[in-house]
Design a protein around this nucleic acid. Structure first.
Lengths: 192, 192
DNA sequence: TCACTCATGTAATTGGTTACATGATTAG
DNA sequence: CTAATCATGTAACCAATTACATGAGTGA
């Protein structure tokens, strides 16, 4: 019955599945994505790595380097890959916030090319539902709303709308995979 | 030096500043905003209310109702309002995630009409910086990126772009406040 | 009668941040 | 010589979720 939202530890595992890294590496990789995900503090990152290690989902190799501090490179194990696929394959729970969506997105294609489309479609349905419910609330609160509330609602609608647009165009692109150069065309931000 | 990110308790306080409510009310109001903010569980909501009460930032009145369960209506106190304005007025720290932005947005205009514009402009700068940094990372990772990472990046860019568009159009609207009907025009989602 | 909404709360546990501690190397 | 980056870690603390407990009323 373990409700499966352990995420962050699994996500780290997923990054290690792509290539072996040190805690420091992970931190900086995540940092480079800005606040799309937000990188965990070392205070949670290192313990997470230790936990994965205790569970035999990863292994470490210590890299001693002359003059420089030594690094601990973590690699995923077979058991780790299994645990990961299991996590990836269970459907994201519907109230999944932004972060969770992107986390899975980054990893999703590594573990089932078909699953990616399904995942995006699932997300589309959720965002659409969210959008609809915001619109409903917007209609319901006619009297006694203040500017802030109206703005927040409007903001939410705008972002949901933009996300839907992105999902549609992405799903579209994925369904017509031109053999050469699949996703290269850089600015897909063609909401214009 | 207390770094000021107590947020959630302050946010609840802010909601009570708009009108007296029960814990149940708060929960449902937040729920109506979908995952824009996400409503806290009762397990954190009620204790938060108790804490505010102990700090004399709010007062309670118990509403006994024949046949129906009684409700506890919380109202903000003068001390509460002071604490709140103080919180509202301190600048949002730059890594502020989505949630924090919307929380403040909902409350901001109640406590300084000028501050709202400043707040949006501040946000604009942050989002622009975020967008730029994503673009930089996108350029940097030419070799050995996988589809998921590319998609995540693209997604981030699209959303940041949409947010910038919303911020610009909103700042624009706010700067030309037609006396009648300030923000009524419902679909401002004119990114088209 | 069964399930659901209304309405409040507590306790156990998890997950995370902040702050602290260490220590070498490099760039200004 | 000072600050920053590289690199790892622990301990104290905080915030939040989950699960539990209670209890009345409403609608199928």
């Amino acid at each position: 019955m373990t409700t499966a939202t352990v995420s962050s530890r699994h996500f780290i595992l997923g990054l290690l599945a792509q290539k072996p890294m040190s805690g420091y590496d992970i931190k900086h990789f995540l940092k480079s994505l800005g606040w799309l995900i937000g990188s965990p503090s070392f205070g949670s990152l290192y313990p997470a790595l230790h936990t994965l290690l205790r569970g035999n989902l990863v292994t470490v190799k210590v890299l001693l380097r002359e003059g420089k501090p030594s690094r601990k490179i973590y690699s995923i194990t077979e058991a780790g890959r299994e645990a990961l696929t299991e996590w990836i394959n269970q459907p994201a729970k519907s109230s999944a916030p932004l972060k969770a969506f992107v986390m899975r997105l980054i990893l999703a294609d590594n573990f089932s090319p078909i699953g990616l489309t399904a995942y995006l479609q699932q997300r589309r349905a959720q965002v659409a539902a969210h959008h609809a419910s915001l619109e409903k609330t917007g209609g319901a609160m006619d009297e006694e709303i203040n500017l802030g509330q109206r703005l927040a609602l409007d903001y939410g609608l705008a972002l949901a709308f933009a996300e839907l647009a992105w999902l549609d165009s992405t799903l579209n692109r994925l369904s017509q995979p031109l053999p050469e150069e699949v996703v290269q065309g850089d600015s897909v931000t063609s909401i214009v």
